[in-house]
């Protein structure tokens, strides 16, 4: 349990996490966030970096495999003393394990042999591989919707759905922490979700723009674009 009043000034200097999702422009850039996070103690700063390295996809190389994530998760769980942060890491790894299982099954693979994934449900998932939601409806009610999106090959919607699930779980943990280290970590993780959400929206907007452009140009087959050979 952290000191409940340890980071009062830091938390008060951050815009509310709810504002992150309603703002058209990000109310806080990563640069400004990092400047504010300079108020963290050296130990907490390292722990935050460790948690971000585990939970942010941008902290992984393209070639990184499941073993890297599991190794980082085990190291983080060994080092993190705060029960709330441990629960957040475990929650997120269980979410990833369940989604990885859905993807494997959609690809036509069987349950992975031996030790795989992380969390309480790995054996349960393998034992209920043929069930639509691995019989995890009660623990993971969002899994049915995620399975549907994977089947319909809709990665953008799936990403939004998972970000939404992760955000709601963080909100649940945030209710018990206001000015302590856990509150700071939860805020940064929410900021990361917002960042990925904004990137997903930008990608969707770019794709939609491209589709509309092609549709509009279809009516003008003789139109020569700049740089295009006649």
């Amino acid at each position: 349990m952290s000191d409940p009043d340890e980071y009062i000034a830091l938390v008060s200097s951050l815009p509310s996490s709810e504002r992150l999702f309603v703002a058209k422009q990000p109310p806080l850039s990563r640069l400004r966030l990092d400047r504010r996070l300079a108020a963290l103690s050296a130990e907490h700063s390292l722990m935050l970096a460790q948690i971000e390295a585990l939970l942010s996809w941008s902290a992984y190389d393209m070639q990184a495999d499941e073993a890297v994530a599991i190794r980082r998760a085990k190291a983080a769980l060994r080092d993190i003393a705060q029960p709330t942060l441990r629960a957040i890491v475990q929650d997120r790894m269980e979410l990833r394990t369940a989604v990885a299982a859905l993807r494997l099954r959609a690809r036509g693979d069987g349950p992975p042999p031996g030790a795989w994934g992380l969390g309480r449900w790995t054996r349960h998932i393998a034992a209920n591989w043929s069930e639509p939601t691995f019989r995890l409806d009660r623990s993971m009610p969002w899994l049915r919707e995620a399975a549907r999106m994977i089947e319909h090959r809709d990665p953008l919607e799936l990403q939004r759905h998972l970000l939404d699930v992760s955000f709601r779980r963080l909100q649940r943990h945030a209710a018990r922490h206001q000015f302590d280290f856990e509150a700071v970590v939860i805020y940064v993780l929410k900021w990361n979700i917002f960042d990925r959400w904004a990137q997903a929206n930008a990608e969707a907007a770019a794709r939609r723009f491209s589709e509309l452009s092609l549709e509009a140009l279809r009516d003008f087959p003789d139109l020569m674009l700049e740089g295009q050979a006649p």
Partner: peptide, 13 residues
């Protein structure tokens, strides 16, 4: 002290 730290943080924002 607790409330003062919050007010200092809020002034930044």
């Amino acid at each position: 002290s607790i409330a003062g730290q919050a007010s200092i943080g809020a002034m930044l924002e």
